[in-house]
Design a protein around this nucleic acid. Structure first.
Lengths: 232, 232
DNA sequence: CGTGGGCTTGATAGTCCTCAAGTCGGGTGG
DNA sequence: CCACCCGACTTGAGGACTATCAAGCCCACG
């Protein structure tokens, strides 16, 4: 371990950044971008994309198989970066799309090289951000590989609620949840039809309801219990 | 993108390192470790582990659910690091075990901090290593979420063959494959029994055979065709 | 008011799991 | 050297979970 509490800096890359580093970041800032919902931010196989930081809205990272199947790999929230892997490796093997309308801060991707060569604190932020995202994917893989539909859905609802809660106060009985049935299905390795049936069960059991783009957790302890078996 | 062909450096972290950086790494080297097969290298939830580099042998990264299910997240081969996430984030949310007997180079994990603060080239290696590993997990997740048992197995056989081939010349008709049925099952979200049945099919179809810890690819074009639909 | 996309639900089928028994092979101790 | 033993592998029968296909519904939008 290097120093300090690192998890603070893993959700919002630039949170409480030193003045010096903030100035450097500012120097690489370009025109901000706005995007409606359901638009591609970056596409699988692109090279030399820029780096974005989500100011407002949600996005999702995914891969497409040639068979037409879409696997959602991660969801991205305000404060998180899009295109960091591309800046590091040169190519991206995944796409990113907006889930809601997005407000993006655009950064020249040379910022990453600059950080590694001259701004260690920044470089560490990038590395930790990467590691945190990787950790989320590990969790998702575990859930998809090990759990049935009820647990998978419980996991995703719980995870997205928790991530919102880290960004600011959130009412568990009514929080944002802009995913369509198909997003749930594609993230969890299920079909839309089965997601629907499973959501019905969770509703009838009084655990949680997803309706009109909102999630309301009716019984947080029970939801947590469903999820507990998974992570730790 | 930063510079040069990055994929060269993603499998073996320290491959063709500059003299200066190699000296720094050497300064953080500790006593080498040897480990028999099936032993824990690091355990989920540990703090302050050291950093290892595999010199010889294979390992695997995995998570356990409380239900007792094991999800294998990645396989690790010579040249790759164990414990990098721990060095960056302070905690690990996964375990690593040896698959074969392991010869490990032990490194003081403060090397990571040193790299970020004073050795940009090294820090970049670490970051790219992290990004490459994350990319592999993305792929695995996609396969597990989208594909049936035949494709999942084809994918894993192909991937592990390719990774061996990057390390040195390998005969596709007879290469190392030290995974048990249960490893395959736990990596791919299947059961041992079903893995077995599916392997039978692949053998009867003349595509590939796994026996006595060896993989022999009988029809590489056809195996590649099975896998092609997945990644790009 | 018509249209289309997302949601909902049913019937049916297939993949994969569970459980269990039996086989094989390698290692150990007598 | 052989008998034993254990873990890994193999195979079968039955069942659970999830997919597929299809139809109808609802709502937002033009």
């Amino acid at each position: 371990m290097i120093s300090g509490r690192s998890d603070r800096y893993t959700d919002d890359v630039f949170r409480s950044l030193g003045e010096r580093e903030a100035a450097v970041v500012a120097g690489f800032r370009r025109r901000p971008t706005n995007l409606p919902a359901n638009r591609a931010v970056i596409d699988q196989g692109e090279v030399g994309t820029s780096l974005f930081r989500i100011v407002e809205g949600w996005a999702y990272r995914f891969r497409r198989t040639r068979a037409g199947c879409r696997q959602i790999i991660d969801f991205l929230m305000p404060g998180e970066l899009i295109g960091l892997e591309a800046a590091l490796l040169g190519v991206v093997e995944h796409s990113v799309s907006s889930l809601t309308p997005l407000r993006l801060e655009t950064l020249d991707s040379r910022l990453v090289a600059e950080a590694f060569y001259r701004e260690p604190e920044l470089a560490l932020r990038f590395a930790r951000h990467l590691a945190a995202a990787a950790g989320r994917v590990n969790e998702l893989l575990t859930v998809v590989g090990c759990c049935d539909a009820v647990h998978r859905l419980a996991f995703l609802m719980h995870a997205l609620y928790r991530r919102q809660a880290r960004l600011g106060p959130v009412d568990p009985r009514d929080c944002a949840f802009p995913l369509r049935r198909q997003h749930l299905a594609d993230a969890l390795g299920l079909t839309g039809a089965h997601v629907n049936r499973t959501l019905n069960r969770l509703r009838h059991d009084g655990i949680a309801v997803i309706a009109r783009q909102r999630l309301s957790i009716l019984d947080l302890p029970r939801l947590t219990a469903l999820v507990d078996g998974i992570a730790n």
